[in-house]
Design a protein around this nucleic acid. Structure first.
Lengths: 341, 341
DNA sequence: TTGTATGCGTTATCAC
DNA sequence: GTGATAACGCATACAA
């Protein structure tokens, strides 16, 4: 910066003023300084700036997995909104490892990030503690996507999963399926999954019973879907349709169904959840429920920055609507691209 | 830090020494200070530390797309190696946008990162300039995966694409295909694509000619594969096999082939490149060529940190071997998981 | 072992 | 508009 000041024959703080677009500098010097900056290829030291100013324009984002196709769109929404408002994103991938999550949270704190958007697959004590402690220090924290309430310090963004699963289940019931199997998410000690309760509610509303054998524990990955589908198909009266907790598990289910010599959707219909990119390209194209990932990411960042600007903003809880996308895997009346209901 | 020092009744620099594991502190005070740090939930300010020490333990990583399933494994390799050596990663997603790439490069410079690992899909002038300028300032730069040489300042990590495409093409020739179509990567003004030249070389080695109509321009995405496959199948003598520039395009080709009422692999065999996760789960499972993404990421970070520790380390050019994975889409003799040749 | 002083590259607050 | 000066939170050299 000294070099720039010298070359432009002005003082250091004039250069600073130009960089930060402060008033009180003549247009002439402003342009001259800008030229010199470009010519010298000078980049201001953000570390020093943030240190002195006691604030940074970097926000942290922690996601549980970069391999899971669920997150890219979310991250894109987050990033775009951040950039639009002049912030940059420190993206951290915890690799589905709780320990790494905490490590990254600490790291971000040491980096004195302005705010945090965090997602996890396993809500445990260390995690909630870390988030709350950050929030308590005045760092705006947004938790996404989650159904957990984390005290009134932490903003929560989520899709209405329960309603999404009601839509998915209703779709299958409408098609006339009498025995629908559900691969449930991994059990969570805290509360019943809204995905499972949506499945049950859809049945209950029509006065239909769900026999327990039709609900098998599962997980988020392809292998989980394969295992759980195998269990469902081994029942003495196997289901004619399967609801999976997400698209990856749904793909696993489809693989297993075909392996066992049955057809999708003719013998067994399958419905997923998330609408990840591959759902449209898979064969059969996957009927699923779309979460507006991109908009959720955007909204998360918006909420965080709002809170940053005005710490008195209430820590809201924002719920997004989902959309059923009917494609071929459920045997609905469709083309490859599906249509929205 | 003052608070910690006061609470532990020691001086500030004793706290600093404890944090940085310096010698010259009694075990007793060391433990006491650690306790206080934990109790007060103190996190050292990395900005201040890096500013003072004139070096940081943060490295930058720029990838062109977080949506492309090609990069996650690469990033995991990069991150794991970084973490193993005590560095943390500032991950930037340029969203296939050249402007954003440059913006991020500048941002990382302002953050005074210790080193950089960068990938791009479009090597243009602004990009190479930015990388070289960074390298010239003494920041170790690794470019991955690339076939471009960027002067002897920049380390390059790449897979042997040409050889990979020779393997893919040989596989199809071995199966007896006489007319093989190739969806080529987007044209690059600088040089011929090694992927295309591998395809040609495999033919040449057997004294076979490739008629120009069998090579159609394409791209990296599903839609590109669909379009290009359509053109190949519309030929008066359509090919009996297609080689795609990557797995996404291969999936697009398969979709289009089925759409046109032909079967894969019975009517048209398809081979991809990359071995992304979905390749194994697709139907038909995709025959493809595996790049060791994870190891390439690891190696990239290793090379960068080696250079950081010893700036005299030569800027090598590291090439990785690829592996043909035969699955059902090529009609090779296989199960779903494929086997390695 | 511990304390004291100095500086990293900025921004902010003055008086000029 | 400009020029000095202090301060941000830490690391380091040196003296005690």
């Amino acid at each position: 910066m000294d070099d720039v000041a010298r070359a432009a024959r002005v003082s250091k703080q004039t250069v600073s003023a130009v960089i930060n677009n402060k008033s009180g500098i003549s247009e002439k010097t402003r342009i001259r300084v800008r030229e010199i900056i470009a010519r010298l290829d000078y980049q201001p030291n953000l570390l020093a700036g943030s240190l002195r100013a006691q604030r940074s324009f970097t926000v942290g984002v922690v996601i549980p997995s970069i391999t899971n196709p669920f997150y890219p769109e979310l991250v894109r929404g987050i990033e775009d909104e951040a950039q639009r408002q002049g912030y940059s994103v420190f993206l951290c991938n915890a690799d589905e490892n709780s320990e790494k999550e905490i490590q990254y949270l600490d790291l971000l704190r040491r980096h004195r990030i302005a705010g945090l958007v965090a997602a996890t697959i396993r809500v445990n004590k260390a995690w909630t503690e870390a988030l709350k402690s950050l929030a308590a220090q005045g760092v705006p924290v947004v938790f996404v996507p989650s159904t957990h309430k984390l005290g009134d310090q932490v903003i929560c963004i989520m899709a209405d999963d329960e309603e999404g699963f009601i839509k998915a289940t209703d779709h299958l019931l409408d098609l006339g399926h009498e025995r629908i199997g559900m691969i449930s998410p991994p059990p969570d000690s805290r509360k019943q999954s809204p995905r499972l309760s949506g499945f049950l509610k859809a049945h209950a509303r029509r006065g239909k019973k769900v026999t327990p054998e039709l609900i098998v524990p599962g997980g988020w990955h392809v292998a989980d879907g394969q295992q759980s589908a195998a269990r469902l198909l081994q029942l003495s009266r196997p289901p004619t349709a399967i609801v999976a907790p997400n698209d990856m598990a749904a793909i696993g289910a489809i693989i297993k169904i075909k392996e066992l010599g049955r057809r999708v959707p003719e013998d067994v219909a399958v419905v997923g959840y998330d609408n990840i990119a591959i759902a449209e390209w898979y064969d059969p194209a996957l009927t699923t429920v779309d979460q507006p990932h991109y908009r959720m990411g955007q909204r998360a960042m918006q909420a965080m920055l709002d809170r940053l600007k005005d710490p008195n903003e209430p820590a809201e809880m924002i719920k997004f609507d989902t959309t059923l996308i009917v494609r071929r895997s459920s045997g609905g009346p469709v083309g490859a691209k599906g249509y929205r209901l």
